[in-house]
């Protein structure tokens, strides 16, 4: 995903790249919308990525 400033119709901003934000972004993309996922830290994944015994699949294919 580029850092383009151009206006894209049908965009949604998702604030926060934890599991909820990632899921929302993935679903929106699949539903035909352009998503800006805005995350304050350097990686997405949130707290779930710290967890041991869940699946930190992080299969974020944006």
């Amino acid at each position: 995903m580029g850092k383009g400033m151009e206006h894209r119709a049908g965009s949604v901003m998702v604030l926060g790249g934890g599991i909820a934000g990632l899921q929302a972004a993935l679903d929106l993309t699949e539903l035909g919308y352009y998503v800006y996922l805005v995350e304050k830290s350097a990686v997405v994944g949130g707290v779930m990525a710290q967890l041991d015994k869940t699946f930190p699949t992080n299969d974020c294919s944006l």
Binding site: G10, V12, M13, L15, G16, G18, G21, L28
Partner: peptide, 8 residues
């Protein structure tokens, strides 16, 4: 067009 807040 819309904003989704998921700050955790």
């Amino acid at each position: 067009g819309a904003v989704i807040l998921t700050p955790g």
